[in-house]
Design a protein around this nucleic acid. Structure first.
Length: 199
DNA sequence: ATAGCGATGAGCT
DNA sequence: GCTCATCGCTATA
């Protein structure tokens, strides 16, 4: 059920970002289980992608986990407020990552509502990378966490099937500084879901 | 030691 | 569409 490490070791991060749509992501934090179906992702490709934190092999305390073997979490704080959750892919020294930008809630909606200080379920509960991370209690303590472990993982979603036409391929958000790479079609979302950060 | 800034989200117009 | 909260990372000195 849990995706094995070999899944994350695949070399095409863009293909993985697309393939993760429809899969189930689960966290077990403080005895509270939350899960959801992944509806929106973006690919960031290590060395040659100007939008990637590891562009041209940039190696800092923040980016170091990106260079590990695929199957670990890369979480960083954005705008001083939001934790953004990424999955590291490819083999060691290839700093590729997939940003999870939105999910559709499945289990633990009450827990998510509490974490988000909300009273009722609507699409803002888990759409947008900062909102998703907060609802799933993903933060800096998950930096480097193994996705084969018992804290956060991804499962195959046998029951859910969709047509190819339900996946929209488009450009990534918030990376205008990346010059010629800002228009790469590396964002994917399930256009039949309400839980999308931006259409 | 510190200036500059960002893979965002909320609220208001 | 516009503003701004908020702070750790990064580069530079």
């Amino acid at each position: 059920m849990k995706l094995p490490q070999s899944y994350y070791l695949q070399e095409d991060v863009v293909a993985i970002a697309r393939d993760l749509i429809g899969k189930k992501i689960v966290t077990m934090v403080g005895d509270q289980l939350t899960s959801g179906m992944i509806t929106e992702t973006e690919a960031y490709r290590g060395y040659d992608d100007k939008a990637c934190h590891a562009h041209l092999g940039k190696f800092t305390k923040r980016t170091q986990v990106m260079y590990e073997n695929g199957g670990v979490a890369y979480v960083y704080l954005c705008y001083g407020i939001h934790n953004l959750f990424n999955i590291i892919t490819n083999t060691q020294d290839h700093a590729d990552a997939v940003l999870i930008r939105a999910v559709e809630p499945v289990d633990g909606v009450e827990v998510m509502l509490k974490r988000r200080n909300k009273l009722k379920l609507d699409k803002t509960l888990t759409s947008g990378p900062g909102n998703f991370s907060k609802a799933f209690a993903l933060d800096k303590t998950h930096y480097g966490a193994f996705l084969t472990g018992d804290l956060v993982w991804i499962e195959e979603n046998e029951l859910f099937r969709f047509r190819e036409s339900e996946i929209t391929t488009t450009t990534r958000i918030g990376i205008d500084y990346a010059q010629e790479d800002k228009d790469l079609p590396w964002r994917f979302y399930l256009n039949t879901s309400k839980f999308i950060s931006k259409r």
